[in-house]
Structure formats: structure tokens, C-alpha cells
């Protein structure tokens, strides 16, 4: 230790002076770890309880409450939830709902990225009359979340005959301009000289977009995609209103159905409800975990 000590520090005084500081620091570190462990328990504890309880028999849960240990009925429960038909028609399975959720997440994310990139490209890189009008019209959508205009939106979609259709489900959700805004900010941060160099190199609007702008936006697109996939997957209110056809139910929408069945049941299928909750959270959670860095980047950048 002494060999490694700072040669500039006065040798005899150093250990005596350093010890209280080190001790205070160590104490602070321990305190921080305690806070964080408490936080991890707070955030992850409910998930653990949910998963563990889903592997128990509902009768046990009903009499003894939610469980922290493994109940051994993992395969049975999840097989039932995934493969056994349910709902009023008896045809809706967990697998189908998961698949529908994937479609909604992908459709929402891809649709939003494509549409908003094109619009942002027009707004930033073209000079044309009504450019600012177009910008403000799109901007206005930020002012009104779907939840506030839910009833008239429903009526419009109904009038267009788009109830129980994927376009009717996805398009109104895409109307908000968050991603357009983000791409606009991003495009503006790209140095002007790149466009100038590309023009001298003979690239027109199409070439510039395909050869330069899209490749440069790759990481941004990926980040937005992750966020939007999760947001799309997690949609609840709009799918709940829009889709009455059970074959279109997403897994998050399915939560509502569980509760309807639940009310009035003698011993509800707690395990199945909890398994469904796990299935509904697992895919987006995996996406967030696997692409953690990109996800954080996307979140922090888009919300800015």
C-alpha cells in the first residue's frame, strides 16, 4: 500500500488524514447501495410476485394469498393461457393475442417512422409555400392526446367504416406528431454542408434521402422504433373501443376481458390472469432490456 501511495503527499500525515475521509466515503457508498436495493425491490418485487404466483394453483392463491415461491405449475398454466381458446367465441388464445400485439406494435412503429420521416424531410429540406402552415397543422396534434378526443375519433372511424380493421386501429394512433418533431430536430442538426456536398455530387432529393439522410438516421430510427414499438404494444383505450371482434384483440386489450370474466367468479383463475399479465409485459420488457442503450437514447432524445 505504501508503495502505491501518492508520492507527493506528506508520508506520515497521509494515513491519519485519509482514514476519516475514506470511512465517510465508504459509509456514503453503503447508504447509496441500500437506497438502490430498496428501489430494486420496489420496482421488481411486484413482478417477481406476479410471476411466482402465476405458477400456483388458483385455489392455493385464493386461500393463502399471492406467493413468493415457485408453485410448479408453470407449464400447465402458460400452456392453457397460450393455447386454450377463451373469450365469448372461445376462439381467442394467448398466442393469437400476442401475435395481434406484435402486429399493432410493428404497424404503429413502422408506420409512424415512415410517415414522420417523410414529413420531416419535406419540412426541413424543401422550400415551398405553405411549409410553415403544414408544420403548424402537424404541430397542433401535440396539443390533443387521443384520450381527449376519443369519442369524436371513434365516430369518425365508424363513419369511415374502419371499425375492427387494422388501418382503423393504427392510423388514428399515428396522427400524433411526436416522431415528426423528433426527426425534424435531428435533420436540423445534420450539417448543411452535407446537402451542399451532395448537390455538388449530383444528388437530387430522392438520392439525398436514400443515400445520405436515411443511412445517417439509422441509429435514430432504431431508437425511435424501440420506443414506438413499446408504445404501440401498450395501447389500451383505443383498441378497447375499436376492436369488438375478438380475433383482433391484443394481449393488453385482453386484460379488460379477463376482468369482465373475473367479476362474479367464485374462485377466479388468478394464475391465468397473472400469466397473461406476464405475457403482456414480457415482449416489450425484453425489447427494452436487449436494446437498453438505444432505448434510453431514444427516450431522452425524443422527449427533449
Amino acid at each position: 500500500m505504501t508503495a502505491l501511495a501518492d508520492p507527493l503527499a506528506p508520508a506520515p500525515a497521509a494515513p491519519a488524514a485519509a482514514r476519516p475521509v475514506n470511512r465517510a466515503r465508504r459509509r456514503a457508498q453503503i447508504l447509496h447501495h441500500i437506497v438502490l436495493i430498496f428501489g430494486v425491490l420496489l420496482m421488481c418485487g411486484p413482478m417477481v410476485v406476479t410471476f411466482m404466483s402465476s405458477t400456483w394453483d388458483p385455489v392455493v392463491i385464493h386461500s393463502e394469498g399471492l406467493q413468493l415461491g415457485y408453485g410448479g405449475k408453470f407449464l400447465e398454466t402458460y400452456e392453457t393461457v397460450l393455447l386454450k381458446g377463451g373469450g365469448f367465441t372461445g376462439e381467442i388464445t394467448g398466442t393469437l393475442m400476442l401475435w395481434n400485439s406484435v402486429l399493432l406494435g410493428l404497424g404503429f412503429a413502422i408506420g409512424k417512422i415512415v410517415i414522420s420521416m417523410l414529413a420531416a424531410y419535406a419540412i426541413v429540406y424543401f422550400r415551398f409555400p405553405f411549409a410553415s402552415l403544414a408544420f403548424w397543422v402537424i404541430f397542433a396534434t401535440l396539443l390533443l392526446p387521443l384520450e381527449v378526443r376519443i369519442l369524436p375519433s371513434y365516430e369518425v372511424v365508424q363513419r369511415l367504416g374502419m371499425l375492427n380493421s387494422w388501418s382503423g386501429l393504427i392510423l388514428p394512433l399515428i396522427a400524433s406528431a411526436t416522431a415528426t418533431f423528433f426527426f425534424r430536430q435531428f435533420f436540423r442538426s445534420i450539417p448543411d454542408e452535407l446537402l451542399e456536398a451532395a448537390r455538388i455530387d449530383g444528388a437530387g432529393p430522392f438520392r439525398f434521402f436514400v443515400d445520405i439522410l436515411a443511412p445517417l438516421s439509422k441509429t435514430m430510427m432504431a431508437a425511435i422504433f424501440i420506443i414506438m414499438f413499446v408504445v404501440g404494444w401498450n395501447q389500451y383505450l383505443w383498441p378497447a373501443l375499436m376492436t369488438t371482434d375478438e380475433s383482433m384483440f391484443t394481449i393488453v386489450r385482453g386484460i379488460r376481458q379477463i376482468l369482465q370474466v373475473w367479476i362474479g367468479a367464485n374462485i377466479p383463475d388468478y394464475n391465468q390472469a397473472l400469466a397473461l399479465a406476464i405475457l403482456a409485459m414480457a415482449p416489450p420488457a425484453l425489447v427494452v432490456l436487449v436494446f437498453q442503450r438505444m432505448f434510453i437514447k431514444g427516450l431522452v432524445e425524443t422527449e427533449k
Binding site: P191, L194, E196, A197, I200, A203, I212, L216
Partner: peptide
């Protein structure tokens, strides 16, 4: 005439090299 058709070449202050190529 468009920049690309002017038979010129330009070196920019920040070089403007395409970063992804």
C-alpha cells in the same frame, strides 16, 4: 445551372464528408 452541372468541385470548411460512407 445546378451545382452538380457546373463542372466545379468544392472543399468545405468542415470537409462535409459523408460520415456513413
Amino acid at each position: 445551372v445546378e451545382p452538380a452541372e457546373r463542372d466545379i468541385a468544392m472543399v468545405f470548411q468542415n470537409y462535409a464528408l459523408y460520415p456513413h460512407m
